Amino acid sequence: MDAKCSQTHEEILSSLTLRYPELVSCDTEVRFVVELLAECFRKGGKLLVCGNGGSAADSEHVVGELVKSFRFKRSVDGAFLEAYREINGEEAPSWLEGALPAISLVSQTAFTTAFSNDEAAVGVFSQQVYCYGAPGDVLLAISCSGNSANVVEAAKVARARGVKVVGLTGYKESDLSRRSDVCIRVPRNETFQVQELHLPVYHCLCAAVEAEFFGGGE
């Protein structure tokens, strides 16, 4: 974690387009997604994330920034600290941090290999979304082309489960962008260049949402 961040939610959002002017075309969508995620977490929902290859690594990265502290020091809920003290007869460990619930669907190796072998590789993320997804949750579906079949199928299941779909793609319209509640289409189409712009976008999303819940906290 960096030294404690003092930026506000708005400063974090504004800094994205200051550092990456080409992402001004995504500003409206980025702001919308931040509010969508904040609403999801406020209501006790969770974020599911999936993608292939480099986007699978990005899925893990996103979850890492949400489940532990990213740029802000995160306090643990006071009611939990009281319950821990009462049940265990001691103070909660100092290394516990506030968390934002997120699950990477790419990391469950035993399940994904079994399902791919027994059923259909195209359905690995869909089955997990069906299992974990609930109304009010959000699926962040990452695909540089926007046409990755297993990611698109996950989006289909998500919408049927009442899960909001956020697409993160390249600039071209795609199957995923058409099936998303909101799609952040970065202004590139070649895979590695799309991935280079996905990183600052999801860092901004994570930092801005973190600021909503932990900004100003000790």
Rank of each mutant, 00 (worst) to 15 (best):
K172V: 05
V49K: 02
F80G: 07
P135N: 01
E86F: 13
F32Y: 08
L66W: 04
Q7H: 10
V62M: 15
R179L: 15
G54A: 13
S104P: 14
G51I: 13
E218L: 11
V34H: 01
N88M: 15
P93I: 07
Y20Q: 14
S145W: 13
F41L: 09
E10T: 11
S25W: 00
V34S: 04
L96E: 01
Q193H: 11
L18D: 10
K43M: 09
F214L: 09
E60F: 07
P101E: 06
A154P: 14
R161I: 01
P135R: 02
G215P: 05
E90F: 10
V166M: 06
H9P: 02
C206R: 02
G98P: 12
G64C: 12
K164H: 04
V76Q: 08
G51R: 10
N52D: 05
E210K: 04
T112I: 15
E153N: 08
T191F: 09
A155Y: 08
E11R: 05
T113F: 11
P93M: 10
N117S: 13
A121E: 10
S107P: 00
D77N: 15
A155G: 15
N52W: 07
A83D: 11
I12Q: 01
K164C: 09
V194E: 02
K156W: 10
R85E: 15
F111H: 12
S126C: 09
Y130V: 08
L16V: 08
V194H: 01
L13Q: 03
R188P: 05
N52V: 14
E119G: 00
D118W: 09
K68D: 09
V49F: 02
G45C: 08
Q195P: 02
I142S: 03
T169K: 02
V62D: 00
F80I: 10
D118E: 12
R159P: 00
S126Q: 12
G44V: 06
C50Q: 04
L199P: 01
S59R: 04
L176F: 09
C144R: 04
S14E: 13
G167K: 06
R85W: 11
Y202T: 02
Q7F: 13
E11D: 10
G170K: 03
Q108S: 06
R159V: 13
L48D: 04
G78N: 13
G53D: 12
E97T: 15
L23N: 04
L100T: 01
V186Y: 06
S180T: 03
K43E: 10
S180N: 03
D118H: 07
G64V: 07
A92S: 11
N88A: 13
E119P: 00
Q127M: 14
V129S: 06
V67G: 05
F111W: 14
V24I: 13
F115K: 07
L23C: 06
Y132N: 03
G44F: 07
L48N: 01
L47Y: 00
